[in-house]
Write a protein that binds this DNA or RNA. Structure first.
Lengths: 250, 250
DNA sequence: TCCTCCGCTATTGTATACATAACGTATTCA
DNA sequence: TGAATACGTTATGTATACAATAGCGGAGGA
């Protein structure tokens, strides 16, 4: 009954969902582990009903798995699951880029994308990039992807892309962070930036196929680098979300 | 308190979810309409807690939409939403086919697909196709798509494809039914069957790009025909799920 | 010593009571 | 006559009590 003052403005359900997602992504809950409602009630401060609703939402989101006999467990992901999810998101983003190109986008709508691009250019000018700049890059990159997705003007597609980003490492910021441990990290960022530049150009010139192709290539690059990064786990173990990846099976 | 005998083996939550989904897809609930918990409690026979869980699940599934002030409403879909969803599913199925082709599939795994193919061939030999045969076709076609999806061996992808099929008309059986009103319906089925044949051939020969391309073409055909079908709504109005499509905006 | 069965405990599933917020209606004042 | 406010009703959000089931441990028999 202590923490009653924690932001009354949001509903208990949302509060519980956010708290549990944090626990899942930060690794304080181990994959395969059964998640106890009572325990969740204690850690989140909400009562059982909103906690249960949050659990259902997280299951639909793909972070939890229902146990047949009842209750939920933390879902475990293989390395393959992660790389498939990235490729999946890349494919969907490719479709989004194609929709944007084919359906036409006004100069005004492209403006924020170009600002993002310029801001990232500025950051990448540093060699080697500082920690702060890298953190800013992660944010800007996520923003770029979100804006690009929006350009498709297709609610079902946007929804699916959001879903595909739910898994740890499958989100735009997730896999960038995973790659940060690689020695050639900066070159990767520069190539990625080039992809961003091409996709904007393709959308501007209404070249749907080219816009789609470059986004898929973007994802393929990400998959390749994630694989590499998972080989030298040394630094990666710093990232708690890695705990979600069960023993590499492939 | 009357209907207590309705299949005790399933949980109240699942029962409520199925009942509500039926109501949504059959059109007894109109798009945009607010869905009352109390009303749902009466029609489903479950109590408020499982009904709420079912509502949350249906929202995550995309059939309902949360109202900011509280509660849920039946989601309305534009014609664009539907066709985008079909194209989306086609894109994902294309990826699934490519995965299957690239990763290799044993002859034994392809067997059920080929059986499906043969069974559909048998049905399509009838000209014109009977109502019963058409209904059998719908089932077999859905089975074919499900089996193909499984061949990808990628749980995240399979999950996303299932999600993309949740919308009315976006499922394999859904859009086939929608097209049934068209005069050239049988030709469409025959072309679709040819696509099925090609994708199996491509997977067998490990031609990933070809497998993917044909599935995307398959979806594009579906989109085109759905558009056509929505033009002559005469017969389509027989399908109650059409009620979910709000006034065509494009 | 091992296997089986019974019972207990702990956790989930379900129901319902209570609180709170929103919407509609009616009344009053300008 | 119209608009605004206040009150009442209704529906949702939350909490908790109750029921049922599954898992575990112990005890007894083979």
């Amino acid at each position: 009954m202590a923490e009653r003052d924690v932001d009354r403005s949001v509903s208990q359900t949302v509060k519980a969902q956010l708290a549990l997602r944090d626990q899942l992504l930060s690794g304080s809950l181990r994959p395969g582990e059964r998640i106890s409602e009572l325990q969740a009630v204690e850690t989140t401060g909400a009562s059982r009903t909103p906690v249960r609703m949050a659990l259902v939402r997280l299951e639909e989101e793909g972070l939890l798995e229902a146990i047949p006999s009842g209750g939920f467990m933390v879902k475990a992901f293989s390395e393959r699951d992660i790389s498939d999810s990235i490729e999946l998101r890349g494919t969907l983003e490719g479709l989004a880029a194609r929709f944007a190109a084919e359906r036409g986008v006004s100069a005004r709508e492209l403006e924020p994308l170009k600002e993002c691009l310029a801001a990232i250019d500025e950051l990448l000018r540093q060699v080697p990039i500082s920690v702060d700049a890298f953190s800013a890059y992660v944010t800007l990159n996520a923003r770029f992807h979100a804006l690009l997705t929006e350009l498709s003007r297709s609610p079902p597609l946007i929804r699916q892309i959001d879903r595909a980003s739910a898994l740890p490492f499958a989100s735009p910021s997730g896999f960038v962070m995973a790659q940060s441990a690689l020695p050639e990290a900066q070159q990767i960022l520069i190539i990625g930036q080039e992809h961003h530049r091409v996709v904007i150009d393709a959308i501007e010139n209404r070249e749907g196929a080219r816009a789609e192709a470059v986004m898929r290539e973007h994802a393929r690059l990400a998959v390749r680098n994630l694989r590499l990064a998972l080989r030298n786990r040394t630094h990666l173990d710093l990232l708690p979300a890695l705990a979600l990846i069960k023993s590499a099976t492939d």
